[in-house]
Amino acid sequence: MNVYSKLGGAALAVAVAISSTLLVAGPAGAAKPTRIKGSVTSESGTPLVGIKVTTLADPTGTGQWVEVDDALTGLSGGYNVGKLDDGIYRVRFDDPAGTYASEFYDDAATIEAATPVDLTNGGMPTLAVARLAGAAHLVGTVTGSDGAAIAGAEVTAYVREDTAWTAVTTVTAGADGTYDVGGLSGGAHTLGFHDPVTGASEFWSDRVAIADADTVTVPSAERYDAVLATPLPPTTPVTPVTPTTPTPVAPVAPVVTPTAPTAPAAAVVAIKRPRIKGVAAVGERLKVTVGTWNPTSVTRTVQWLANGKKIKNATKNRLRLTDKLVGKRISVKVVASAAGRTPVTVTTRRTKRVVD
């Protein structure tokens, strides 16, 4: 016979001997026993055959849930369980084949969250249809931070009940650190990992407290691998080293090798400076000559000036004189450049004042 003990929020089945007096869930002077009936289907509504339906009672009121009676569902998925005395019961549904997830009435993951079935007034109640979800699995591997598998690591699955996490089941990782938590119903779950040897623990994913754990939505095809911190080996204290007085060393004068100055690039030379040709009068055109240069091939830029100031848009070899230039003396600034040479700038002599 099994007793369900509330331990850390989980329903933990432990085999113990129970005296026959504990099988009485109701008062000693109760009337004739009664039964509970109902049916079990898959989530899609298909009747499930061979599902084990178990009634549980807490005769001492201390959270020690005792299995009272059980029955298997028939071809139509129906069940009729127990010769039950008056009292308050819980009902659990299990699939011996492991195809469907276990649950408590009514659609609860834990016995604490189960809906009570009240038989204090006798009768033969028919419960709502129990629709079982497929048995979900969460799998993964537990290793240390050194990469070694943690054999025997304890992996606990928790289900969300209202705003808190409730432990559902715990499995032990194999020699290679792998684990498989099965029989889970769908919905919000999380995982806890514990190394019983080192005491290292964490929750999914890499969380210190379960309140901060990340949610795992079941069913899930993902792997949930955990890496627990591996304790560092004790360190050997280091004997302090007595500092020694350094022996002074005479400074060595740095050897500086003088760098030969780089000769500046030769400048373009104006052998014959450009000059202005033409009459300084309104309506006339002035022209600037090319000049003669060394090297002979140069690139020239031209800027016409009036009394030494730039004339807007006057950058060609010819300039037409307008009324705005009357009374001003005209000159040209020429910049000559060539590859490998420093450019040179020359300015022509000024003309006479422009007349109307």
Rank of each mutant, 00 (worst) to 15 (best):
E161R: 14
G140C: 06
A30I: 02
V252C: 10
G183A: 06
F203V: 01
D106L: 15
T41F: 01
T169Q: 09
A130W: 14
K309W: 01
G82E: 03
K324A: 14
R90K: 15
V354R: 07
R350M: 11
W304F: 11
A213H: 09
S19P: 04
A265T: 15
G78E: 13
D162G: 05
T299G: 02
V241W: 09
T217K: 08
A314P: 11
P116L: 08
S20Y: 08
V40G: 00
D212I: 02
A265Q: 09
D58M: 08
D356E: 08
L48C: 06
E103P: 00
S19D: 13
A253S: 10
G291F: 08
R349V: 05
V355F: 06
P264F: 14
D146N: 15
H189F: 10
D356Y: 07
D214P: 03
L48N: 13
N317R: 11
N2R: 05
A267D: 04
L321D: 12
V218R: 04
A57E: 05
F93L: 11
G327E: 06
V256R: 04
A136V: 09
T166K: 13
A31P: 11
L286H: 02
A113F: 04
D225A: 10
T351W: 06
T141I: 07
A280L: 09
T60N: 10
T296D: 12
G177D: 10
A114T: 09
T60Y: 07
L23A: 09
D58Q: 03
T163G: 03
G199T: 03
A57N: 05
T262V: 15
P231R: 14
P251R: 11
S20H: 04
A130M: 12
V255F: 04
A128W: 00
K287P: 01
S145T: 14
L138S: 01
G278V: 09
G199F: 02
W304N: 04
W204K: 00
T34L: 05
S145N: 05
G199L: 01
G38Y: 02
G82H: 01
V40P: 12
R273T: 08
L325E: 15
A226S: 15
V142N: 10
G182F: 03
A226Y: 04
P116G: 07
S102M: 10
A213P: 04
T347E: 13
L325T: 15
E43P: 03
F193D: 09
N313C: 02
L132V: 01
S5D: 06
K287Q: 08
P237I: 06
A25S: 11
T73A: 00
E202Q: 14
F93H: 12
R35Q: 14
T245I: 13
G283D: 13
V302A: 04
V268E: 00
K83C: 00
Y4S: 02
M124C: 08
W165D: 10
G45M: 05
K310L: 13
D58G: 05
D214G: 12
G147V: 05
A250I: 06
G9T: 08
V256C: 04
P254C: 10
V53W: 00
L127K: 03
A265N: 06
K333G: 02
G192A: 15
V16W: 01
S39V: 06
V208D: 11
A130I: 01
G308R: 13
V354C: 03
V334T: 12
T143G: 03
T239C: 00
S44V: 09
I111P: 13
E202I: 03
V279I: 14
A136Q: 09
A11S: 12
F104H: 10
E284H: 13
